[in-house]
Nucleic acid binder design. Structure first.
Length: 368
DNA sequence: TCCCAGTCAATAGA
DNA sequence: TCTATTGACTGGGA
């Protein structure tokens, strides 16, 4: 059996299971005839859409475990199943994205799927030269993504800029002083570091974004361990600060951001000290959320201090998606709690089948 | 126009 | 050869 078949089998069974589990949480049989691509049966996406809150951190962690256990590479999984590159898969697995959604939106989702199916059928009839892969489980989204402009401009690609450690240090110090530098500051930084302004701009965007994600993960981890937080809710985004972390990727200790001897650009050399900025200063606009100030960092990172006592690892599968009873939703309504438990049971079931499917031989034919 | 989330893809490291 | 990192880019929202 090829790894590709394994992946397919794995994901196929996930879909199948999820459709049934939605109706019957406790049991399901995967032998049901498979719907064609673009069908209106419930898939993993729909199941997910019906869950207002999911511990995506735990789910992602489990998926990662399954991939590892079954020797399924990120590239294969990403390209075959998700339509993502290896790097994106790695990023997602390392930093899962939280969500919060309205379960009633499932109706919208079904409508969208119907539209998708129509479009798919239309394309199939009209396209003559496009020899589609036998694996019809690839969704229409996959095809559209394959035609991204990035692929078309392949020949025009610029060489990748690799920032030197000193340059990164200087940028980080500048960031500490001003997470949102003005165009003037950016230009000064670019000049002093001999970089393009676009590179500096991109660096600040990326750094802010990745720090934010790191904080999400911390909150999720804290929340999934019983802390009554609004973990995972995009609404919490507005409460984030961008400058509260020294390290972007979590692999560097916060101490690395201290001013470093031997680096050409000291804090005063970063071009960020000449404009009277305070720790919370943001030069342009002034329309940003005020609590983005680094000065608030302690308040927003305190949730991460909860020790890692997750009982998921090595434990029974049924405990994988045990939603904390202390979360606001379940606390205010016992019915919610029961609902959440049902969902947890469903998800545990899915994971169980994922694992079983990964070790099975026969590929089946359905979409993820 | 700016910021963001999401993603790609080059590169480094294991 | 695999995964992790990260600069660059796109599209959407305000």
């Amino acid at each position: 059996i090829s790894a590709g078949e394994s992946v397919k089998s794995l994901t196929d069974n996930t879909t199948q299971t999820s459709s049934q589990d939605l109706c019957e949480p406790s049991e399901s049989q995967p032998s049901t005839p498979l719907p064609p691509p673009g069908h209106s049966g419930l898939s993993i996406q729909e199941m997910v859409a019906m869950s207002p809150e999911l511990d995506t951190y735990v789910i992602t962690k489990k998926v990662k475990e399954v991939l590892t256990d079954n020797n399924l590479g990120q590239r294969l999984f990403g390209e075959t199943i998700l339509g993502l590159t290896q790097g994106s898969v790695s990023d997602l697995l390392a930093r899962p994205k939280p969500w919060h959604n309205d379960p009633h939106n499932v109706e919208k989702l079904m409508d969208m799927k119907r539209m998708e199916k129509k479009a798919y059928m239309k394309r199939r009839h009209s396209s003559v030269s496009d020899s589609q892969p036998v694996d019809s489980s690839l969704t229409t989204i996959d095809y559209s993504q394959g035609a991204s402009p990035q692929h078309q401009h392949h020949q025009l690609k610029k060489p990748r800029v690799v920032l030197a450690p000193e340059e990164k240090e200087a940028l980080k110090r500048a960031y500490q002083q001003k997470p949102y530098p003005s165009p003037k500051t950016i230009e000064e930084l670019a000049n002093q570091l001999n970089l393009k302004t676009s590179t500096v701009i991109n660096w600040f965007h990326n750094y802010r974004s990745r720090i934010r994600r790191e904080l999400f993960i911390e909150e999720i981890q804290a929340g999934s361990q019983g802390a009554p937080t609004e973990s995972g809710s995009p609404t919490s985004r507005a409460c984030k600060t961008s400058g509260e972390r020294d390290s972007c990727d979590g692999t560097e200790s916060d101490g690395t951001m201290e001013s470093r001897p031997g680096v050409a650009l000291g804090p005063d050399d970063c071009g960020v000290t000449s404009e009277g900025e305070g720790p919370d200063s943001r030069e342009e606009g002034g329309t940003q959320t005020p609590n983005r100030s680094p000065a608030l960092q302690d308040a927003t990172t305190s949730a991460s201090s909860i020790p890692g006592t997750s009982g998921h690892k090595g434990g029974a599968l049924q405990s994988l998606f045990s939603f904390p009873e202390t979360t606001p939703a379940s606390a205010k309504n016992p019915r919610d709690s029961s609902l959440r438990k049902k969902k947890a049971a469903n998800l545990n079931n899915i994971i169980h089948r994922l694992e079983k499917a990964a070790s099975r031989e026969e590929p089946s034919e359905w979409e993820f």
